[in-house]
Write a protein that binds this DNA or RNA. Sequence first.
RNA 1: GACCCCAUCGUCCAGUGGUCAGGACACCAGGUUUUCAUCCUGGAAACACGGGUUCGACUCCCGUUGGGGUCGCCA
Length: 461
Amino acid sequence: MYGAIQSRWRAVNAKVRARAQQIMSVRVRFAPSPTGHVHIGNIRAAIFNWLFARHEGGRFLLRIEDTDRERSTPEACQTLLEAMAWLGLDYDEPPVYQSTRREAHLAAAEELLARGYAYREDKGGTGRGECIVFRMPSTSIEFDDLVKGSLKKPASDLHDFVIVRSDGTPVFHLANVVDDIAMGITHVIRGDDHVENTFRHIALFRALGAPVPKYAHLPMIVNRQGRPYSKRDGAAYVGEFRERGILADALFNYLALLGWSPGDGRELLSRRELIELFTLERVQTSPAQFDMDKLLWMNAQYMRALPPAERLAGHMKDLNAHGLAPDPEYLLRVLEVMQDRIKLFSQTTEQTIYFFTEDYPVDEDAWARRWRRPGVPAAVAQLRERWMSTPFQGAPLEATLKEVAAAAGRPPADLIHAVRLAVSGTPTGPGLYAMLEVLGRERTLARLDRALARARAEGYE
RNA sequence: GACCCCAUCGUCCAGUGGUCAGGACACCAGGUUUUCAUCCUGGAAACACGGGUUCGACUCCCGUUGGGGUCGCCA
């Protein structure tokens, strides 16, 4: 008997909890205005919203605030959507285009008017006609910011503001709040630059009879001078990072760590781990300076962890973009000897050009430095003759070089560097013998012949 | 100017009254290597300043200084 009551109570209780859960379920949104490029500060806000939603098992929504018809072109929206997709910021409901919600915004304004929360006015007698002004309450407004703590504004600092322009279009504040209500937003996670707006927004929520969401204001991403990071400070838009060959996962990981950390020192975090660890409580209160060096380092970590096929594709793409289309098998061998030397896909061609064409740049200073040494050209000439019949593999090539060097009474390094410059044009790169193996005998000998001829022409011997 | 926010190595973060103030990037040195990159080892490097509170402050409070944000019929 008692057990039955208890189990029934448990069932009811579970139902109540489930219902409460449904009502309270987290709903956040990213609400950018499409401008044709997506700033890292904005996308970082999107990332935090996304992580929060995923961590809480809530929903992440997208609202495109395209009411500024000047900038909000279809292309700009497309850029935004592409950036989201590239970073894997998937949203749980179809995007809401704010420009389609004008009627709702104006209806809300009418309601505020009807209920005395707003009034019509020809502000300052500008002759522009009547606009609708929201009447701020005569009491102070206070709220608990999830990252900044308690924030308060006395009534004396709160001023009435326009919610519908004299041309009949709704202003940002009105549209933003009306849409947040319609979308059932429970948490507003946005940039620091919105804190002042929050007091107005809270007043609007109340006047509209809607529950006020929780707020979390993120510190800004700044430049070396502590000012908001802009395109003048380097890559600032998502598209630029993508073009430079930065991996989406690396950028995501790096941005997640700008203003937040799990607290245990871990930095290389998978998406899964980020979701699991993310909490607003651990969000930093002070601004963070963007550090490209660290992003580059992180990108290198992600690159080497990439599945081989994806790595190959990434490098191939850059080569293709430069008009090169090497055989995948051959490219694979090149990458094998290049090891961790390429840190960005976008630098592939630049660093491996000599593997694919005879038209590669030569570091003139290094070339002269290596070839002008007396006896070097002659020794290389001998080496070239020996290599005609040496099995073209690392060990024998190395043995031969050392023999020739010894016979010429020179350290092997002298020949190694001279040969390196001759066959690759650059003083840096993979181990010489591995490089020669990939290049093959024919190309190697031809390049040595050219170098020898050049040395002769320049009077080196 | 008014209102608000912020303040630990060069940078990003740990640190929530008692620590030799820790990690990462960058930097420097050494090792590995023919070079470069990687990798390994080591090093230099910070609590803005001044008052309190306390037996004891990087940690709490106040002020100063410095930086930033907001003050639109932009979003």
